[in-house]
Amino acid sequence: MVVLWQSDEFNLQIRIMKKIIIQGLSIIVLFFASWFVLLQINWVAIFKIEKITDKTEEKLGELFWEIFQKTEIENVNPFVVSSVDSIVTKICSANKIDRELIKIHILNKDDINAFALPSGHIIVYSGLILNSDNQDELSGVICHEIAHIQLNHVMKKLVKEVGLSVLISMTTGNGGSEIIKETAKLLSSSAFDRNLEKEADIKAVDYLVKASINPEPFANFLYKLSDQENEATKYLTWISTHPESKERAEYIIEYSRDKKISYKAILTNDTWGKIKEKLRE
């Protein structure tokens, strides 16, 4: 009799346990099911998140470029512009990047610097071209900046450091010109964080290899300029804003090691020499 009563009690316990497990599981299922159902709706489009950032980006790009246009001298020499353009066109077509998106500008300045602005503007200082030993080094830097644009690093950095609200207020004309200038300076003279830089370096190597450009000179460029004895040290903005250049050169070499294919020059040596000549004028 006692044994029978105990087994009844035991069965009851099991039944309750089962009930609890089923009920618990159904709550979990209900949670994931509602998440899944809600996932079918395109929330980002409803809240216009992308649209806001796209439009803001376009306007910011224009605003910042205007500032550089006003304060620096743009090199509009057709030979230089078309030659650099042809490098960009080659990289873009080999990597299926919309060529219209990348707007490259060359500014006459001794600083060894290149940087990306929102909405696909890339600014390269003549000092960087003059200090590149060959066109592959320049191509490497251009690829690195294109990678920043394609990976959306520029807007990420701006949102993180300035804040989306300030950025939007700039585009609606409420931001003071001082803030815009300061933000433009931030883009030209400070690096992204290390992970983003590495990501852009690796992507740049991919772009270079696809465009049949040897990535090694890009690494050499970093090595060369990280050398403190180099006479160009005082103009080394691109290197001082991009820390650990040696380390970067090393992982670029490491990453591109097994990607050896035949490389083709985009410009002839003559053209490259002429670009430098024109820039020195």
């Binding site: 949670f31 509602s34 998440w35 809600l38 996932l39 709706i41 395109n42 929330w43 980002v44 809240f47 998140i49 990420k156 993180k160 992970n195 983003l196």
Partner: peptide, 21 residues
């Protein structure tokens, strides 16, 4: 807010589900 993550449909759907619960 602090890293490279961006707002996606997944995130918004999760937040709404969490709000309902």
């Amino acid at each position: 807010i602090f890293t490279d993550e961006i707002i996606t449909d997944k995130y918004i759907a999760y937040i709404i589900t969490a709000l309902i619960f």
